[in-house]
Design a protein around this nucleic acid. Structure first.
Length: 271
DNA sequence: ACATTGACCTGGGAGC
DNA sequence: TGCTCCCAGGTCAATG
């Protein structure tokens, strides 16, 4: 479910509720997630949460003993901060019992997410190391994209969803950004001009920023950490709007596939 | 090196 | 009501 805006929304909701609190107990379901549960997880008891960071779609809890908890929400993960005594929900897989009667709870029906815990520099984590730049950083711009596209014959949509190129752009915001930039999702990446890459980089920044400001997109079940849905779905221009009129030109929005993923675009506005 | 495909999971909705 | 099929916000190993 979550792309960068949903993970950032989660981080902003969770961080003020858990930062500074100490870990009193840890629990996990033991069911297979994308990666194995960390061993000796009980050793984090007694440490405290120093900071909650985000890199790409990963959440990272920095702990006071220089270790860190790395959480990925996969497709269906949701994190909430509840009381110690709360009803156990189906698909709850990880719970951190903290001081002040708080509990951080990860619920993930599809179990594409994971929780890892390790010591040392979090930037050396294997999931972090080979990632491209953050889309909202200054390292990401049209020139960078243009250079990355050299020799790439793949569809531009696939390219911007590649975490080695840029992180955090998932299936919803890829379609939305390409609409805003006026680029057809299947255009071969190396055939796009520098000027249009400028536009695309700007579009990605705009779409992601606006989605963060709206608290993310709730298609069916994404919840902010306070339980409210995100509101960006009200601003979606193409995603999920197959055969509805384009908000800009009234042409019918088309649905197609890029790789195995659904893609939405306006055949008039996007070339 | 690059690009595409299948696999990992559960649940919800459509169609019969 | 119940069955089957398809679809879903992400990644990554295997394959061509």
């Amino acid at each position: 479910m979550p792309e960068l805006p949903e993970v950032e929304t989660t981080r902003r909701g969770v961080a003020p509720l858990v930062t500074g609190l100490s870990i009193e107990q840890v629990w996990h379901s033991g069911l297979n997630m994308r990666t194995p549960w960390p061993e000796n997880i009980g050793q984090m008891i007694g440490t405290s949460v120093v900071e909650v960071k985000r890199r790409a779609k990963l959440l990272m809890l920095a702990l006071s003993d220089e270790s860190h908890v790395m959480i990925h929400l996969g497709m269906s993960g949701v994190i909430r901060v509840l009381d110690h005594v709360h009803p156990h929900q189906k698909h709850d897989h990880f719970k951190l019992y903290l001081s002040q009667n708080r509990a951080l709870v990860l619920n993930d029906p599809r179990r594409f997410g994971f929780v890892e815990w390790e010591r040392g520099d979090w930037r050396c984590n294997r999931h972090i190391q080979h990632l491209g730049p953050e889309p909202l950083s200054s390292a990401f711009d049209g020139l960078y994209l243009h250079q990355k596209a050299e020799n790439k014959r793949q569809a531009i949509k696939s390219m911007i969803m590649d975490n080695q190129v840029v992180v955090g752009v998932g299936n919803i915001y890829a379609s939305e950004s390409l609409f805003l930039a006026g680029i057809h999702p299947h255009r071969a990446a190396h055939r796009i001009s520098a000027q249009r890459f400028e536009k695309l980089a700007e579009a990605i920044k705009t779409v992601l920023s606006q989605a963060i400001a709206a608290g993310g997109t709730t298609l069916k079940d994404f919840k902010q950490s306070d339980g409210k849905p995100g509101y960006f779905q009200q601003q979606l221009m193409v995603y999920g709007r197959a055969s509805e009129p384009c908000h800009r030109c009234q042409a019918k929005i088309k649905k197609t596939k890029t790789g195995q993923r659904a893609t939405f675009y306006c055949p008039q506005c996007q070339r």
